[in-house]
């Protein structure tokens, strides 16, 4: 299946996977009742984010990464992202934050510089206003910009936009974080992290493997910085700070295709013909399948809930 086939698959299957995945949190917030108003924003946000991930990873930064790797990463975003936000108190706000951040990333990666300077920056500010965890995107740019000779201006622009978004969000009365109550955050965060363990492993490997150019004119030059900040923020979340897990790991989702591509090459013997390296690759693949089990079980729970909610299902 080529690029177009995987795009169609991502669009169709992404929706199919996201629909039941968005159910548990919607029913939870509806106090046991399903309402379309609780479900629809979450469903649309992750569906669009998944499609955005697939489209935005087709540029030169992912040169050599097969379409199926990008498709799998996008589908996993559609299936798991809603389940990694089960404990958010303000779930619609969290969904909008995810959508705004994903859209900002897509624009930064795909649009021409003159365009991203308006829409991309604006969406970054909106994402930060909706959830302070989104500030990892400007911080990632800033980190990358520190190493670059010419990227300072872009980095500072985004940092100020993010800060502006944070201030405006507070001024209009939005809570700073869309997520957890402080004293209950640790267990909830860990439950959310457990759903995306396979994404973490593949994203971490992709992050360690990805070699993006430092030139700021290149669309993906800031990705390693974003991923680096994502890892730091995720570790803070694991320690109990009430960050939004799925926003924190979004950068690793964008690097997951690189990890998948390398693992596939390792298994197929394209990287090396050494038997031991390939054996290790096989064991790693099995471990990642095992790590995916909590996420698959959570998605299955959403699907069963969906079957129950269908007319005649109960």
């Amino acid at each position: 299946m080529k690029e177009r086939g995987w795009l169609v698959t991502t669009v169709l299957l992404g929706g199919v996977l996201a629909a039941p995945a968005a159910l548990p949190v919607a029913v939870l917030h509806g106090k046991g009742e399903f309402t379309i108003a609780e479900w629809l924003p979450g469903f649309l946000a992750v569906w669009l984010a998944a499609v955005g991930l697939f489209i935005s990873t087709s540029g030169p930064t992912w040169e050599g990464v097969p379409a199926w790797c990008r498709g799998i990463a996008a589908l996993s975003l559609g299936a798991l992202a809603p389940l990694a936000a089960m404990s958010n108190q303000h779930n619609t706000q969290a969904d909008l934050a995810l959508l705004a951040m994903a859209a900002a990333v897509v624009l930064h990666l795909r649009a021409q510089p003159s365009r991203w300077q308006t829409a991309g920056v604006l969406l970054t500010a909106v994402a930060c206003g909706l959830d302070a965890t989104a500030f990892i995107l400007p911080l990632g740019w800033f980190w990358s910009g520190l190493r670059s000779k010419t990227g300072h201006a872009q980095a500072w622009t985004l940092v100020f936009a993010g800060l502006g978004g944070l201030v405006i969000g507070r001024l209009v009365g939005l809570p700073m974080l869309s997520g957890y109550r402080i004293q209950q955050s640790a267990y909830a965060i860990h439950r959310d992290v457990a759903v995306i363990l396979a994404v973490l492993a593949l994203g971490l490997a992709g992050y360690a493997q990805a070699r993006f150019p430092r030139r700021p004119t290149h669309p993906g030059w800031w990705l390693p910085g974003w991923a680096a900040v994502s890892v730091c923020v995720l570790l803070a979340g694991v320690l109990g700070f009430a960050v939004n897990v799925r926003l924190a790991v979004l950068g690793l989702w964008w690097l997951m295709p690189n990890g998948l591509a390398e693992l596939a090459a390792l298994l197929q013997g394209r990287l090396t013909d050494d038997r031991i390296t390939r054996t290790v690759g096989l064991l790693v693949a099995l471990a990642i399948v095992a790590l995916a089990v909590p996420g698959l079980l959570a998605w299955r729970g959403g699907m069963l809930m969906g079957l129950y909610l269908l007319p005649g299902g109960g």
């Binding site: 860990h190 694991v238 693992l263 290790v280 790590l291």
Partner: peptide, 25 residues
């Protein structure tokens, strides 16, 4: 590099899985 990178990524994730309940508690 490839082998250790993959072992590192999976090990880090498994260690996170083991450490999270202690940190949460």
């Amino acid at each position: 590099e490839t082998t250790w990178r993959w072992l590192g990524a999976t090990t880090a994730t498994l260690a996170l899985l083991a450490a999270m309940p202690v940190l949460a508690a």
